[in-house]
């Protein structure tokens, strides 16, 4: 564990909780892409199957359980409890265009052709693009609430910090995972445009264009 990892994990946790609280407090999921949240739930589910096979630490287990729990809670709030506020018309990204190629890539490019390994690889690839429906939705409506931009900022920060974590681990622990690194770079790049807007608009709600 290094400082980049720890702050990255906490930033990720903050993003997840910000989104849950935003929906819960406002009793509305307007402006939130349910599709992105379903993708994240799939990401956590397929990656954390190792909860059943290997124990790393209490920290590791707790965080994984919290991530999975929050992901499903978010999906529940969007599609069940507050579904009347869900803006399905604007959440029109075709997720099959992500899931199918990502699934194919996971089968083709992985470290080991085994069931759990392919699911892990799939989750890594899928996470790198899971935010696209959300970014697409914002670009379509042309606006995002301030709290939604904080959510995206924390999520992007988590990814950027993981890149530093991997540089750290390469130098001090001598290992690296090319699949995770390439996917992580792709994911971070997707946030660059957003980061720029977030910083220049001082985190205020903004009009967004591609």
């Amino acid at each position: 564990m290094n400082i980049f990892r720890l702050i990255g994990d906490l930033s990720h946790l903050a993003a997840i909780i910000i989104l849950l609280l935003k929906i819960w407090k406002s009793r509305s999921c307007a402006g939130i892409s349910g599709k992105s949240q379903i993708l994240f739930a799939i990401v956590f589910t397929t990656r954390y199957l190792d909860l059943l096979t290997s124990f790393i630490s209490l920290y590791n287990t707790c965080m994984k359980v919290i991530y999975i729990g929050c992901a499903y809670a978010t999906v529940y709030l969007i599609y069940m409890k507050f579904r009347a506020t869900y803006d399905g018309n604007h959440d029109s990204f075709r997720v099959e265009f992500l899931v199918v190629p990502v699934g194919g890539l996971a089968v083709l490019i992985n470290h080991d052709f085994s069931f759990l390994e392919i699911l892990w690889t799939f989750s890594i690839y899928l996470e790198s693009v899971a935010i696209l429906p959300q970014l697409f939705m914002i670009s379509k409506t042309g606006e995002a609430e301030t709290i939604t931009t904080h959510y995206l900022f924390c999520l992007g920060l988590y990814r950027a910090l993981y890149l530093f974590n991997w540089i750290w681990r390469f130098y001090f622990e001598g290992f690296f995972d090319m699949i995770a690194i390439v996917a992580g770079v792709v994911q971070t790049v997707l946030y660059c445009d957003f980061f720029y807007l977030y910083v220049t608009k001082d985190g205020k709600g903004y009009r967004f264009s591609i």
């Binding site: 990892r5 994990d9 590791n60 965080m63 470290h111 974590n165 681990r169």
Partner: peptide, 10 residues
């Protein structure tokens, strides 16, 4: 080894 990163990172 690649293993540690697999299960350790979130």
């Amino acid at each position: 080894s690649l293993e540690p990163m697999r299960h350790d990172e979130l």
